[in-house]
Structures are given as C-alpha cells and as structure tokens.
Design a binder for these strands. Structure first.
Lengths: 342, 342
DNA sequence: TTGTAAGCGTTATCAC
DNA sequence: GTGATAACGCTTACAA
C-alpha cells in the first residue's frame, strides 16, 4: 500500500504538503501544487491509512454497539435486527463505523470497560435499555460518550431516543373505539417494564379521552411470550359474555399471536368475533391469518436521530437536545373489525 | 489515559521492558522486574492503546461484515440475524471484532474497496453469497482475505462454510416417507439459486433411495415469498385427488407459511390432511398453527467454523481446509402426520 | 537482562 | 507557500 511518503516523492513535494491537500487546508497550498499532488495520488492510487490517522487524532471513528442478548429461537427481536442495519447506515453517513460486540447478559460492564480502556471505540449506542440499567450507571460514571435507544428509570439523566409507545397505543385504541369497540383489553408487560408502562399509559389516555370506563382486569400483565397472550385471553373468556372484551391490544406481536392462537382454539374468528392489535410489525405479522394490525416503529428515523445526537454528545455540545420521542405508525390489516351485536 | 511511558516511569524501567512483559516474552525479563512492571500497571490502571498497536503491526483485528441487504418487513432474514450474533461472538473469542457495514445492494464493491484501501479491516466475512458473486470476484482479484457463508458457482475457488441443505432436505423427506407419504412435493427456488439447488438435490436423493417415482410437476419453483407457497399449493390442488401430494417440503419457512395459509383457505388442516416442512426455523415457526416442523441451521457452529477458517486464510496456511459443510437438524413439531386414506 | 532508538503513517507546529 | 521535524503509543532490532 502506498503511503503519504510515496505521494510526496511522486509529486516532488514534502509530506506536509500532501497532508495539507489531503485535509484541504484551502489557503495553505497553491492551486498548482495542489493539482500536482492530486494527480500523484491518483496515479499511484493512494488512500490515507486510517489507523495512523486515528493514532494521531486519538479517535477511532468507531461506535460500539452491543448485540442484544443471545437470540433465542422463540424471541428473536425483529425490531433490533432492523435497527442495527439502519444504525450502521446512519453511522456511515456520519463517517463512523459500527463495531458490534457481544457480552454475557448478566455482566456487560467488563466488556464495555475493555473497549473503553483499549480505546477501541469513540462512543457506544445502547439498545434494550432496562430500568436502572447497569451499563448506563457504568458509562455515566466513566463519563464516556454514549446514547441509548430507549429510556430508563434512573435519577441520572442521559441522552436517549425512544419510540413513543404512549402515542402509538393511544392511536391504536382510538382506532378500535372508532370501529365501535367499548370493551377493550390490553395484554401488557409486568409493572417494572418502562416501555410497557408508557404503552399502558397510552391505553388509559384513550379510554379517558373517550370517557370509557376503566376495568382493572382488562389489563393482564405477563412476560414477552406467546403463552402470555394465550393466558390473557383465556382469563377474559371466563368473564360473562357481556363483559368479555371485544378487542385486545397486545404489547407485542408475539403476545398478539398468543391471543390469536388462543382465540382460534376457542372457536373465535379474529377480525370478526375479536379484534387484535399488536406492536412491532414482526416479519410474519402480515402473513398471519388474518394479517395482524400492528404498530410499526420508525426504525430508520430512530437510527438517524441516534447518530445525530451521538455526534453532539461526542462533541460535548451543551445546547444539544437530550431526548427524542418518535411515534410509531399504525399498520392496518385485517385483524380488527367492528364489534358484533353491539 | 496512562500510556506505556507512565508505566515505565512508575516502575522505574524503560518502555521496552514494559512492552516485553506486556507481550510476555518469557525469557526476556527477570521475574523480579516483571513483577514490578505488573504492579505498576495495576497501580495506574494501564491498558495498551489498540490503535498504536495496530499501527505498529499493520493490522486492525477487525473483520468486516456487510449487513445483508436492506431488511424489508416481509422478509427479514432470521438466519442472518442470528448468524451475525454468533459470528461476532466467535470473532471475539479469537481476538477480533466485527465491523458491520452496509452497501448499496447492486453496487457493493466500492464499499469493500474503501475498507481495504484505508486498511480498516483485516478480512471480510461474506454472507448471502449468490451465484457468480461480484464481491467474490472483486476480493479474489484484490487478493484480500475473506471467507463466505455460502457457496457460489464460480470457476475460481474460495474458502466457504455452508449449511448442508442437501443432507437436511434428504432427512426431511426420509422423515415424511417414514410417516407413510409417497406423494411428496417441493416448493423450491428458481434454478439459478445455488443453495436452492442443493436442497432440491436432497429431495431427489431421498426419492431415489426409497424408489419413489419422480414427478416434475411436484417441484414448483418461485421466489422467496409467502405468495410462492400459496401458488405452489394452488397448483397441486388442481390435480386429481389421487395425484395430489400429501406432503410438501418448502424451501423456507416463509414459503411454508404460504402453503399453510393456502391450505387453510382450501379447507385443509395442516398436520392432518396435509403435511408441511419448512427450512430455517424462523422465530414464529413454533407458534404457527400447527407448529411448523422445519430444518434449523447450526448457526453457532457455522460462526465458529467461519472464524477458524478465516484465521487460516489470514495466516495463509496452505494446508487449511477450504470448505466445510454443516448439516441442519430437523425440528419436529406438529405440521406432519401420516397421510390419510393411504 | 535491560535500555536506546528507529519506525509504523499520519497531523500539525514551527521555521524558512 | 512549502518543508523539516516532532509528536501519537506502541513493538522490536540492536547495544550495552
């Protein structure tokens, strides 16, 4: 590989001059010399060595991004998969690359620490942020640049971008109400979940705005699993017919699938006897029977917002925005219909 | 951040000595001095700067991995998502990190070229390799280390690891035969597809071994879509009842879903009237109704094999194996049953 | 056994 | 305007 020295020799100038035209210090070099250098570069096919540059400037133009936990077959996170792609793309547009790494699910900090200490990366992007996230506590203490896709319940403040689950679910419930539903239930996550909490809040908002009564047992909380959806519906079906919900908002497509599967087993036709809405627009959602109406997160925009904010964090811009909320959009398919006999 | 100089000063030795203990040149330094240095390192919390190391050794310990094309909602590739995770993990175990990048789907080479020229990475891992892949032609010509997850139809030879689709599908068909099926069809990919070709070969192998007649119209080729599965089944259902297949092997879970959806719409119960087998074990596969029997690729092992081979490529080991085939495993769920009335 | 010093490929501060 | 030259933090001949 040719180096800056080779270019200098070829162009008959000093390496300093080559460096000047490389970093286009406009006024520093005469347009004649500049031309010579450019031609020499072209001729010998020179590209600056990025490692040397990085050493000199003590940066890496690398952003660390930890792959979310070990993907199990039953809960591959379709949102994070797409997220990684668009994050990488946004990073590249800003002149960065993504260094993706893994870590033990229960002990992430040593890996982050190693990456910081060896000066492998300039910053981190976190995803799958949980309440009182230990990575956030660590990075805050280390005073290392990072940004999070998702909020947390910390006293400390940190920069994040998040999907506006509250607005999303509110819209979903408003849609069900506009269809004529009045008994709307929600299959939710446990109380501890932050994003789960916002989604439930959106549900409550919509009920309140429409002056619909709130029934505590219309919210059933469970894990992120198909089973949780089945169990929620099974409970609601034990209620007297006139009290059973006619529509269900699920916290996630996977949970929605559980509701749909259980409904079918109980002889209910989803999209006629029962309306169901999911969250995420998983790859298979559109091919379910019926196609699942769901809330799709704006992943490309999220990636861009994250990188834009991260640059501000790296440059320590004190005026920069610290939080951005991006609303999901409701993808309407065939899993919702007006309620029967109402 | 402390540097090697700080350690030297703290330990009262030269930086060369520090470097020796860092790279544990065993015999070079007395165990006493070594001890002093180690303590100094511990005391001031020193970690070598990886960029400086890389500059000196002219390597990066970074492996470039292009994110497979832009993920569309309807065909997120669940296999490659998991693959990326396990690849990253295997790379880390070998002292590398993954640099994930994106490129225009129709014009990848400039991006690869840039990464090579700037000396950003030591090698590449390719995935989603297609017949006569332009990236492979480019990398071969550039004589740059790489390895591919997936074979191609090139005259040139290159190192790869691949899933043994032939063996996998053969086993799937043997399983159907053992259940009593004799009219087994396959929803395949177009002729151009290499991996598709191997899977069809496995189908033929099994028929031949069981002396079952081959019927050309039992193989329907189509794109990687749900629609393709629907269309294949629609065709088979136009045949006289006694000629209709009682079991279908789909090239992919997505295609299998099409077959299942079309079957349901025609009043057929999958797992009773019709048996279906997929390929990939997509996240939703187990939650389909019925749970889909499918072939799961050995992704963790594939990642490890890839990295192991890549190290040999980087080190130019002439004796190293160039090709590894890893069989998938049949995950049996409820979508297959003995044929009715046979 | 340890230290001195050259050099990896850049950038940037000085002189000229 | 241009060119020496000193860093950046490390590894490794070569000397001592």
């Amino acid at each position: 590989m040719p180096t800056i020295k080779d270019v200098a020799r070829e162009a008959g100038v000093s390496i300093a001059t080559v460096s000047y035209v490389l970093n286009n210090k406009q006024s520093l070099v005469s347009s004649q010399t500049r031309q010579q250098v450019l031609e020499a570069i072209e001729r010998i096919g020179y590209t600056p060595n990025i490692t040397a540059r990085n050493l000199k400037s003590s940066q890496t133009r690398l952003i660390g991004y930890a792959w979310h936990e070990i993907p199990r077959h039953d809960q591959a996170n379709s949102v994070l998969d797409r997220f990684t792609y668009f994050l990488a793309q946004a990073a590249e547009a800003a002149g960065y690359h993504l260094l993706t790494f893994t870590h033990p699910i229960d002990d992430p900090n040593p890996v982050y620490n190693e990456l910081i200490r060896t000066q492998r990366v300039d910053a981190f992007v976190l995803a799958g942020t949980v309440s009182d996230d230990q990575r956030i506590r660590f990075l805050l203490k280390a005073d290392f640049p990072f940004i999070s896709f998702g909020r947390a319940h910390l006293n400390q403040d940190f920069p994040w971008v998040d999907t506006d689950g509250e607005t999303g679910v509110r819209e979903a419930v408003e849609y069900l109400i506009s269809l004529g539903h009045r008994r709307i239930a929600m299959a939710a996550w446990p109380e501890e979940s932050i994003s789960g909490g916002f989604r439930v809040a959106g549900y409550m908002d919509a009920l309140t705005a429409a002056s619909l009564p709130f029934r505590p047992d219309y919210i059933i909380r469970g894990e992120h699993s198909e089973q949780a959806g089945r169990e929620a519906l099974a409970y609601w079906l034990t209620l007297p017919p006139e009290e059973q919900p006619t529509a269900v908002v699920a916290i996630t497509d996977l949970v929605a699938v559980g509701v749909m599967n259980a409904a079918r087993e109980h002889g209910l036709v989803v999209g006629r006897d029962l309306s169901v809405i999911g969250f995420d627009d998983a790859p298979m959602a559109q091919y379910l029977q019926p196609g699942l109406t769901t809330l799709r997160q704006a992943i490309p925009e999220t990636g861009q917002a994250l990188i834009a904010m991260l640059e501000n964090v790296i440059n320590k811009d004190p005026l920069a925005k610290q939080h951005i909320l991006i609303p999901p959009s409701l993808i309407i398919r065939d899993s919702c219909a007006p309620p029967l006999n109402d």
